[in-house]
Measured scan of single mutants.
Amino acid sequence: DLSALRVEEVQNVINAMQKILECPICLELIKEPVSTKCDHIFCKFCMLKLLNQKKGPSQCPLCKNDITKRSLQESTRFSQLVEELLKIICAFQLDTGLEYANSYNFAKKENNSPEHLKDEVSIIQSMGYRNRAKRLLQSEPENPSLQETSLSVQLSNLGTVRTLRTKQRIQPQRTSVYIELGSDSSEDTVNKATYCSVGDQELLQITPQGTRDEISLDSAKKAACEFSETDVTNTEHHQPSNNDLNTTEKRAAERHPEKYQGSSVSNLHVEPCGTNTHASSLQHENSSLLLTKDRMNVEKAEF
């Protein structure tokens, strides 16, 4: 173990290094160091905050020279020094078990990766560091076993998940096959086929009936047209017969005018059967003409 005197000496050296690497504005270890034209180094955030307070150039807090945003430059070497100082402080805390008085939040800088452990060898070769390295080497064999167990647990979990997924996939297939086998029997399929065939026959029977009705309507229309044509021909046949009657009536009127007047009046009210309204109107006109002729003949006879 380190003596108290040596611990104090190391602590004083760390404090001196820390004062050199402090920012003059925030009085902390410089984060993202930036250098000016006057070779003074500050935190990048502190300098941008200072420049944004005034429009135009501002003055350096140490030498009062003008500073602009374009004049600022990043210093990589200074950032490396800060990183190495942080590593020294971490090693000091691990070796002594004491917390550094002016320690900052170094938890963000710590890294437990194997590459980081290899890099620590180049920091300080001390008894405390050696003991700590031995402890780490002793704890390393235990870690692979834990990793193997965790991997086995994960693989077993994956296997159970896969088996569950396969079961879920197989179950719908089985149910679907069961439904297909038990849903419709052979008799049901035959009945469905016969039902479809009967429906098709009914459709075939319905369509000819409609065509037959249309044919019957067409035949009825044709018969009505033929009947009207026969009526017209009958009226045409009746007209010459009426003319013959008129000639006979004229002759009778010349011989017996008194008797014919009474008979002509009675004939006005008689309509021949089986004739249309057109034929009756023609008869009325003929009878009126005959009456006028008879009157003329009677007057001539009187004179």
Rank of each mutant, 00 (worst) to 15 (best):
L136C: 07
C26K: 00
D294N: 14
F106D: 04
M127C: 04
S156I: 04
T163V: 02
L217N: 07
L86T: 14
C43P: 01
R6P: 04
S58W: 04
P33W: 00
E99G: 02
I124R: 08
H284T: 01
S152F: 04
K87E: 10
T76V: 10
E99D: 07
P141G: 13
T160V: 05
S186T: 05
K31Y: 07
S186A: 11
S266G: 14
S156V: 07
L217K: 14
L151G: 15
L203I: 02
P257F: 12
E9M: 00
N143V: 09
L50P: 01
C196L: 15
S3Q: 06
D294G: 10
F45P: 15
L204Y: 09
E120T: 09
C273V: 09
F106Q: 12
K134A: 15
S186Y: 03
A224V: 05
K31I: 05
E148M: 12
I89N: 10
A223I: 13
K54T: 06
K250D: 09
L164C: 08
Q53N: 07
N65M: 14
L5H: 13
L94T: 06
V270Y: 03
K192L: 01
L268M: 04
N276V: 04
S103T: 12
L146Y: 10
L2K: 12
Q125C: 05
I20R: 03
E84D: 05
Q209P: 05
G159I: 03
H116Y: 14
S150V: 06
L164P: 10
M17K: 00
P33S: 07
C43Y: 00
K69E: 03
L291G: 10
Q261H: 08
L151K: 13
K37M: 10
C225L: 13
Q261D: 03
V7L: 07
S156D: 12
G56I: 04
K259M: 07
N65Y: 05
V34G: 01
N131C: 06
D95R: 00
I124G: 07
Q53R: 04
R295S: 10
A301G: 15
S216K: 07
R70E: 11
S35N: 05
I124L: 06
C26R: 00
Q93P: 00
I89P: 02
V10S: 00
N267T: 04
D231C: 14
L155E: 09
L2H: 09
M296Y: 05
K118I: 08
K221E: 08
T189S: 07
Q154L: 11
R174P: 01
L94G: 01
